[in-house]
Design a protein around this nucleic acid. Structure first.
Lengths: 151, 151
DNA sequence: TATGAAAACATCCAACG
DNA sequence: CGTTGGATGTTTTCATA
């Protein structure tokens, strides 16, 4: 799908502050509050906007330990099953199915090594998980668009 | 700083939908709306919450192809050198040094496979890079938090 | 099909207990 | 931290181009 100029400016405004009022955004882009809302509703319905989220500083939240867990699933595990299984963990920041040997790559934030280990063990114990392989982040070099989508 | 269980549940609720009302979140965590707002204000002031943003479908913005590149560096490559080398690529969304066999894990968004391949080749040709190993994202299952502050 | 005006409704937030 | 009430924001309805 293609965004027009007005939509792009609205998305840009929301990207900077997703809690700005529609009236406020409307003033910036030259529309009334209802007009902005209608466009945002349409963008959500079309799937261009998938949601609104909070930008957090992991360290400030006490999540000092970051790592990636590669998951090797049992045969015939659906992506939906993986999603269901992983979405219960608040420590999971992102997850994707990937090409290559592993089936999924999961990004995890934990308060410390003990916490990370505990999460790893619980995920490894999920019924759809055959085995895991994990790497710890030593130091984040770049976090341009974060773990989310780029703008 | 340390945040308690209540703060964490509030952040989690906002991560799922940053435009939910404070009253709504309050019901979930067992607090009144003003109490939730006070905590959110404090989390913002402390830098734990750095803002609110919109989650956009990368495809809608023309970023159809996502992948991770593991970088194996030459001996004696500093994290700073990796950072300098990678920060010139707008396609690089995040990068970290990691434990394990590879030295760094790099997240890349590209417009399509050809674009991704071009970026991969250019990164592989960097003087500090010995070899690379990459996986493509088949489908993103979960994308919970927005970006933290770049460090 | 998209917009603005207006009204009904919900939410926010500063002051107070 | 909860409650209150005036201010502000949201969302539906309706008329218009």
């Amino acid at each position: 799908m293609r965004l027009n100029d007005l939509d792009e400016r609205i998305v840009h405004a929301l990207a900077e502050d997703a809690r700005r009022s529609f009236a406020d955004i409307g003033q910036e882009v030259g529309l009334s509050a209802p007009a902005v809302k209608r466009r945002v509703d349409r963008l959500r319905a079309d799937g261009a906007i998938t949601g609104f989220t909070v930008r957090v500083d992991p360290a400030a939240l006490g999540w000092e330990t970051e790592g990636f867990i590669e998951i090797y699933c049992r045969r015939n595990t659906s992506p939906e099953a993986i999603h269901r299984g992983l979405s219960r963990y608040p420590e999971v920041a992102s997850a994707s199915t990937v090409t290559g040997e592993a089936d999924a790559l999961v990004q995890v934030f934990a308060s410390d090594m003990r916490h990370f280990e505990r999460v790893l063990e619980r995920i490894a114990g999920e019924p759809f998980v055959e085995r895991t392989k994990s790497v710890l982040v030593l130091s984040p070099l770049l976090r341009r668009y974060g773990s989310g989508a780029p703008r």
